[in-house]
Computed example of a mutant assay.
Amino acid sequence: MAAQASFFAASLAPSGGAQAVDRALALLAAVGRAPPEGSSLAALAQAAGVAKPTARRLLISLMGAHLVEQDAGTRAYHLGTGAFLLGLRAGRRHDMAEQAADCVARLARDSGDSAFLLVSQGDEVVCLMREEGAFPIRTHALLAGDRNPAGVGAGGIALLAALPPDEAVATLDRIAPATFARMGEAAAYLPADVALARERGFALNPGRVVPGSWGVAVPVLWPDGRPAAALTIAAIDSRMGPARQPELVRLLRTEAALIEARLARPLTPGATPAPQPTLRTARG
């Protein structure tokens, strides 16, 4: 790891500047996208948009940091052991689906409706998981793998509401064309929906994306208070009335608290998920 730090420190020096970091990261990404047999210097240089001598120099630095390695026989480049170790560390923190799979399943079972796990990715929200409940009439507004602009749907509103207000406003301003393309005139309600979710501690989507398809969501927070994910329950509008919303929010908050407890544990190799709670209690 010291070699990685020294490489990036050198790249930020006046002789290299931020451009060297951008080029090195582009090369690293190109190596990561290479086929199993690896990739040649020429192919990587073309993919990263740099000259071959520059690519070779940066690849040597990446190899020194163990992020890239070169096959002695074929001369092809592959991700190195350093990238593997970084991936393991990132996986323990960011494999949200593994941390939350049982929670999403319980939400679907206990509510009888569709339950989802969503995460932010840049200015988009990605649905990582969807579990179906037993109620026969379902909403198909969101499927696993779907992407939407930030703020679209209850989970997207919950994630934005968990951000500092000025950051949420800046995000909404930045993605306004995308949200209008997805939601039409209903996108105008998003700032008020986010503000209300911040006040209540949960988000409600009253059919703004797909008419008749409602959702309620709460954020899952990292220990530092930043949003890590959102848990959502979605159903047809007749199952989302004011009388039922508090019970759904209670279920969501219970599972969100369990995931947050898992995220707060030390990231040790081989750690197992925290035990399931024997008594459901809502967060305060």
Rank of each mutant, 00 (worst) to 15 (best):
D237F: 07
G156I: 10
S61F: 11
R147A: 07
G207H: 05
R75Y: 09
E247W: 13
M63N: 08
M96N: 01
I236D: 12
L204Y: 14
F202H: 14
L263I: 10
D22V: 15
P149N: 04
R198W: 10
V216W: 02
P277L: 13
L142I: 15
A30S: 12
L118W: 04
L267Q: 11
Q99N: 03
V169Q: 06
A161G: 06
A5W: 04
T54M: 08
A90V: 08
A282Q: 06
S61K: 06
A230M: 05
V220F: 04
A30K: 01
H78T: 11
M129H: 00
A30M: 06
Q276A: 12
A34M: 03
A115W: 01
R56G: 04
I236E: 12
R182T: 15
A55F: 05
L252H: 02
A257N: 02
D237K: 09
Q121E: 14
G212F: 06
L86S: 05
G73W: 04
G270A: 08
P242N: 03
P227C: 04
G184L: 11
E124T: 13
A195V: 14
T281N: 00
R106L: 13
I175G: 00
G215S: 10
R253I: 07
A282I: 06
G184P: 11
F116E: 01
M96V: 10
A192T: 13
Y189A: 12
I137G: 00
P269S: 04
D123H: 13
G156E: 01
G80L: 06
